[in-house]
């Protein structure tokens, strides 16, 4: 069996735990413990004073202890939130990864790289609330205020009330904002990895007569695959958690899981249901966890 550690690097059994201990301690206190509490709360009533099953009423559908999950998964609102979350995942994750890769590769070849990258990164620095303000100006129905309507006015299209358009188009408009913000993130990580590809390899293939496209597909891309997997994983998580943009811009039926969770927590005061939604988010991440374990194994085997 192949181990991670080079054979020559002997270690005592506690060496690894020395390196892990500080991080683990904080993780347990700040993340793991609250998560377990959330799981517990998801089985409790809205004010957490009794078990969820005690809220069941005779003659009505009830999932007993999992009653909060029934409400989180089967109501109309739930379907809307799940559909929108799926739409966000399908569009935003590939969208930001591809755009980020494109920017990282393109800007790598120009002398004003630093400036160009700052421009793409800037939306991240503005913060989500700031970004939402900007785009509220863009989508404003009044052509004197909304720049998108003003722009369309120039080519003769009348003003549209963008955020009131029918689902799923209105969610797409919000996803555009999300991509505008998060592409700076994917670009930065991918760019860091791109710089890590040894120059010799790239130069060698150029000398061998490969054109730029071939250099990209045959040399850079294979080297970037681990990073793209990391970025894809992170973006999946970030997309599942997307909240501010939807919350601040608000349209008809644009709710996603995270906004539903916050509504239930602070507006509807339903702690149990809110916790159930949080647990659903965690469950949705399991396929991603599985994928990462596979990557982990592949990576180890390759060394």
């Amino acid at each position: 069996m192949k181990t991670t550690t080079p054979a020559v690097m002997r270690q005592k059994w506690w060496t690894a735990w020395m390196y892990l201990a500080p991080a683990l301690a904080l993780l347990i206190i700040f993340v793991l413990f609250p998560t377990l509490r959330t799981v517990y709360l998801s089985l409790r009533s809205s004010d957490t004073t009794q078990w969820a099953s005690e809220q069941c009423r005779a003659g009505e559908t009830c999932w007993g202890l999992l009653e909060n999950y029934r409400q989180a998964l089967t109501t109309d609102q739930a379907t809307t939130a799940l559909q929108n979350t799926a739409l966000w995942l399908v569009v935003m994750v590939p969208g930001t990864v591809i755009l980020g890769l494109l920017f990282a590769v393109l800007t790598d070849r120009v002398r004003y790289e630093s400036l160009a990258k700052s421009i793409i990164f800037a939306p991240m620095a503005i913060s989500f609330v700031g970004a939402s303000i900007i785009w509220r100006f863009v989508y404003n129905p009044d052509p004197d205020i909304g720049s998108l309507n003003a722009l369309l006015g120039v080519i003769g299209i009348g003003p549209q009330t963008w955020l009131a358009t029918d689902p799923p188009f209105n969610s797409m408009l919000l996803i555009v904002v999300g991509m505008w913000v998060w592409t700076g993130f994917t670009m930065t990580i991918i760019s860091a990895a791109l710089k890590g590809i040894p120059t010799e390899i790239i130069e060698a293939s150029r000398v061998d007569g490969a054109n730029e496209w071939q250099v990209f597909t045959h040399v850079m891309l294979p080297q970037l695959v681990p990073t793209l997997a990391v970025v894809g994983t992170t973006m999946t998580i970030n997309t599942l958690k997307i909240f501010d943009i939807v919350w601040v811009m608000k349209g008809i039926k644009t709710d996603v899981l995270a906004t539903r969770m916050i509504s239930e927590l602070y507006l509807f005061r339903n702690n149990g249901l809110s916790a159930a939604l949080a647990v659903i988010l965690i469950i949705l991440i399991i396929p991603v966890m599985y994928y990462n374990i596979r990557q982990f194994n592949i990576q180890e085997a390759a060394r």
Binding site: T3, T4, T5, M9, Q11, W13, T15, A16, W17, Y19, L20, L27, F30, V31, L32, P34, T35, R37, T38, T233, T234, I237, L240, K241, A258, M261, I262, L265, A275, A278, L281, I282, L284, I285, I286, V288, M289, Y290, N292, I293, F296, N297
Partner: peptide, 29 residues
């Protein structure tokens, strides 16, 4: 460093957990 270069029990499980824990919503903590 421990995850990448050292051997210890439960490496994979803990690594999977790390991926999963990223999703935990701030408000719940």
């Amino acid at each position: 460093y421990a995850f990448a270069w050292l051997d210890f029990r439960g490496r994979k499980v803990m690594f999977a957990l790390l991926v999963g824990l990223q999703i935990v919503p701030l408000q719940m903590t």
